[in-house]
Simulated assay, not measured.
Amino acid sequence: MSNTLRPLSDHWRNRYLLMRHGHSQANQQGVIVSSPERGVADFGLSELGEQQLVQRVADWQWPTPTLVVHSDFLRTTQTAAHIAAAFGLTPSVETRLRERYFGEFEGQSDDRYSSIWALDAEDAEHTHHRVEAVSAVATRMQAVIDGWEHKASGETIVLVSHGDPLQILLTALAGKSLATHREQTPLAPASITLYGRSV
């Protein structure tokens, strides 16, 4: 699955392949795994996720990556390793690409997401149930891109992250209200969205 958005301007220095990790064991079990304490060491890719990445590489339709940068959660680390190996690259960790922290809902059923998203739609600054605010996620995700825009040029950078952070980032890049992030088309596991410098 691919989602390609027009860049905000023609002044991007790099291309970004915004990639959600492949289907994970947390997805398979229907549980929320958003804390580093649980997500860095456990809940990696499911067998389906591994198959998705094999297919993604076999059907590659995007510019050839020159860098692979990823969240340090196991599911994103494994996804990044697969993509990097396919292109002879060495992946690097960027903790600002981590999953959004879901506070009191950590370890609970993923059907709890909907109640947080409803609160998001009312206020992108809320931290009810100790959830990380949408605005905070947007700030750290945008900072990653801003950093690469300042220190590199002409690169094609795969940023491997998670569903909520990527949808929030795409909402911010499109100049939309962060409270509308769930109006973005949901990003499927192993999906890639091309953003930035024109091909």
Rank of each mutant, 00 (worst) to 15 (best):
L119F: 08
R182L: 00
I32D: 09
L187V: 01
G30N: 10
S71V: 07
E132Q: 15
T185V: 04
V40L: 03
T127E: 15
E37H: 08
R13G: 08
F102H: 10
S109K: 12
G22Y: 03
T127S: 14
L17V: 07
A85T: 10
R13F: 07
S198D: 06
D42P: 01
P165I: 03
D123E: 12
M141D: 10
T139W: 06
Y113N: 04
A143F: 06
N3Y: 08
L74F: 04
H70K: 12
L119V: 04
L178W: 04
S115F: 14
S92R: 15
F105H: 14
D72T: 06
T77N: 03
E132W: 14
E106F: 02
W117L: 03
V69R: 13
F102R: 11
W12A: 06
P36F: 09
S9Q: 05
R13P: 02
G196H: 15
T77V: 04
L45C: 00
S161W: 08
V40T: 08
G103D: 06
W148M: 11
H126V: 10
S115P: 07
V33Q: 02
P189E: 01
R20S: 11
I145P: 01
S177R: 12
R140A: 06
V40H: 11
Q184L: 10
D123Y: 14
E47A: 15
L45F: 02
V131I: 11
I83N: 02
V57Y: 09
H150D: 07
V160D: 00
Q108A: 11
P186A: 06
A118G: 01
G154W: 05
H128Q: 13
E106S: 02
V160G: 01
P36Y: 11
M1L: 05
R15E: 13
A26D: 07
L8C: 05
W62G: 00
R140I: 05
V40N: 11
T156L: 04
I168A: 09
T127V: 14
G163K: 10
G163D: 13
G107D: 03
A174P: 02
I145C: 06
G49L: 00
H150V: 04
L18H: 12
T180I: 03
L170P: 06
A174L: 12
